[in-house]
């Protein structure tokens, strides 16, 4: 039963993530955190971090991670197969059509309309990650003991390095992590 659920969830993630890269993130969040509760918001944020740090597409990373967490290695295999299945069918079909007609205009125009929606959804998933980073109880509640000002500082510094210094994203993330680790180590001494 759990395998079927994993399969159906990741089938949807594979079938509806248009635009590559971060486009899969909001779908993964919807299925894995909101609908099925397989991961908490915090673990999801960690998963995005790990996916960013390792090679490979985020959807495949998520399929393996969630599959393993929920149902071991067979779960990972089922979720990954489900995740690439729509691609295999759709792309192969399109490649066949293309070799016959050599025209992708309709598809590309449709995709142009989808892109703004995809940006909006990535923004939504990004908000969830920020909320998970900034607020102790993972909800948008502005109380002094709930807001982590240190995290907001890391965020601001990271944004500055990315935008103004064009720093490597992986490097920026590691830097934020190391700062927090040193802070924790210093406090516990």
């Amino acid at each position: 039963m759990i395998y079927l659920q994993l399969f159906l969830s990741f089938l949807q993630i594979g079938a509806f993530s248009f635009g590559g890269g971060y486009a899969a993130m909001p779908l993964i969040q919807e299925q894995v955190v909101t609908l099925h509760g397989w991961l908490t918001a915090d673990t999801f944020a960690d998963l995005v971090t790990i996916a960013e740090m390792t090679p490979g597409p985020i959807a495949i990373n998520a399929a393996t991670f969630v599959g393993t967490q929920v149902a071991g290695v067979p779960g990972a295999v089922v979720a990954t197969i489900a995740c690439v299945l729509p691609s295999c069918l759709f792309v192969t079909l399109l490649a066949m059509v293309y070799t016959r007609y050599r025209d992708l205009a309709l598809l590309q125009q449709t995709l142009a309309s989808l892109r703004p929606a995809v940006v909006a959804m990535i923004a939504k998933a990004g908000m969830a990650i920020l909320i998970s980073a900034f607020f102790a109880d993972q909800t948008f509640r502005l109380a002094k003991d709930n807001v982590s000002f240190r995290m907001i500082c890391y965020f601001a510094a990271a944004l500055f390095l990315l935008r103004k210094k064009k720093a490597n994203p992986i490097l920026v993330m590691v830097l934020c992590g190391i700062c927090e680790m040193l802070f924790t180590a210093a406090v516990s001494l």
């Binding site: 890269g21 971060y22 993130m25 944020a45 960690d46 995005v48 971090t49 960013e52 940006v119 990535i122 923004a123 998933a125 990004g126 990650i129 920020l130 998970s132 980073a133 900034f134 995290m151 907001i152 890391y154 965020f155 990271a158 944004l159 990315l162 935008r163 994203p169 920026v172 993330m173 590691v174 830097l175 934020c176 992590g177 190391i178 700062c179 927090e180 680790m181 802070f183 924790t184 180590a185």
Partner: peptide
């Protein structure tokens, strides 16, 4: 845990920048 927690702020910044 602290490493991952700090990196979360970083990944948030990466996503904000991408968006």
């Amino acid at each position: 845990g602290a490493l991952l927690g700090g990196m979360r702020a970083g990944v948030g910044a990466v996503i904000v920048s991408v968006v």
